[in-house]
Amino acid sequence: MPLKSNSSYIAACKIFTTDGWITLTSVYIPPTVKRKEIITSLTHLIRTSTATDQEQIICCGDFNGRSTQWGDEKTNANGLQVEEMLEANQLVPVNHGKHPTFSAVRSGVLHKSIVDLTCVSPNLLAQSHDWKVRADSSTTSDHYAITFELSVKYKFTAFDSTKVFKQIPKSWRNFENIATQKLDSVHRARECSVEILAARYTRAATETADYTIRKSQKQMSRKCFWKNSTIVALDRRINALRRSISVCSNSERRDSLRKRLTELRSEVSSHIKEAKLKSWRDYTKQLDASKTWDPVNKWLKNSSVIQSQCLTDSENKFLSAADSGMLLLNTFFLMIRNITIVLNIL
């Protein structure tokens, strides 16, 4: 499916595979003119096409930028510009080796460089392999042909299956023998309602399976309610940076990437802390204060409690039982109580 681009230097389309949609782009960025304009258009196209999909991207082309990050012997200003663009769009070069992708004789001088890149999103990196410069192929250009392979075979993950038990014949025979005895005992029990009988049958089967059959490691993961789009985006940037560091051969550039990685990790830790606090408070706001915290408040007010069981304020001074009870209400029910003391007790 073709995609519309606002630059004549970019061609793009979407390809449907068993792993979902993949955005494929081909770009030419001249050495001098229109570089910023084309990079802006490419960034807009990538972000627009991945706004609703799983961000599976392949970006190929002549970027006219040299960098040791993708195997060139040096890094120039254009290369740094391309590096920044790739990091901003979470793309990782899959170029392998140091064979030049461009070779031409100009004014009697042989020029060689690696300016042609094949970049993929982090979720396609493990599926991309066998990247090669075809120096023996015949082309009408001063750039060599490039090939690489992408595996798109569908694989089950922890999020794809609710399978709990392994299907081992021996285990299932043990299950059948023991379950038969348990279910017979349930059947011989005193007559009861259909609901109770169904619950007993279910419990007997589940207990037998837990005892006789090995569990599968691939079970559906629980939803992370506090994880927001900002944290997801930061995690992807961290993964992209880690891969960039692993393939970067320039020590100075690698140190710069590691410094940025440390900053991003600190930033994501801060966002996680805030997201967890917000998620918990949003949950407690939905609770009925009179049924949940008022009994705790009454207990603290009317019971004789020792000081160590009370809460502390921002100066680590113990509060009275009454103030501790009010603090619980004021902290967890910010919308319906007047805040008298500000303290994060999570």
Rank of each mutant, 00 (worst) to 15 (best):
Q181M: 11
K276H: 06
E207N: 10
L346F: 13
C192D: 11
V92T: 14
N123S: 12
A289I: 15
L346Y: 10
S244H: 15
K112M: 07
I46C: 05
E207S: 06
P122E: 09
K301E: 14
I339C: 09
K259Y: 12
D288S: 13
L183K: 08
N177R: 14
D294Q: 14
W226V: 04
K4G: 02
T340C: 08
S320N: 05
R188W: 11
L319K: 00
K276V: 08
K155N: 10
I22A: 00
P169Y: 02
S270Y: 06
W131G: 02
A198M: 08
T101W: 01
Y211E: 14
C310K: 01
E252M: 13
L110Q: 02
W293R: 04
E73A: 12
D130K: 08
T208E: 08
A199T: 07
D142L: 05
Q181R: 15
N177I: 14
F225V: 15
F16P: 04
L234C: 02
M85I: 09
T101K: 05
R260I: 03
T43S: 15
T139C: 11
C119R: 04
R242K: 15
L197C: 01
W21V: 03
I178F: 09
L300W: 02
E84K: 14
A204E: 06
T340R: 12
N174M: 12
A209G: 08
T118A: 10
Q90I: 13
L3G: 05
T43H: 12
S279Y: 08
A204C: 09
T43G: 09
S270R: 08
D130G: 03
T212W: 03
A126T: 15
T18I: 06
V268Q: 10
S314W: 00
P122M: 13
D282Y: 02
K227Q: 10
L150M: 03
L346C: 11
P100V: 00
I22D: 00
S221P: 09
I272N: 09
Y9M: 03
E83I: 12
D136G: 03
C248N: 13
L86C: 08
L287E: 08
H143Q: 03
L42A: 09
T50F: 02
K291W: 07
E274Q: 07
S308A: 09
I57H: 01
D282C: 04
P295T: 08
Q69K: 15
L45P: 03
T68W: 01
V92P: 10
G61V: 08
T212M: 14
D313Q: 01
K285C: 06
N344K: 08
S290K: 14
S171H: 13
W131A: 00
I238R: 05
V305K: 04
M85A: 14
T68N: 11
C248E: 13
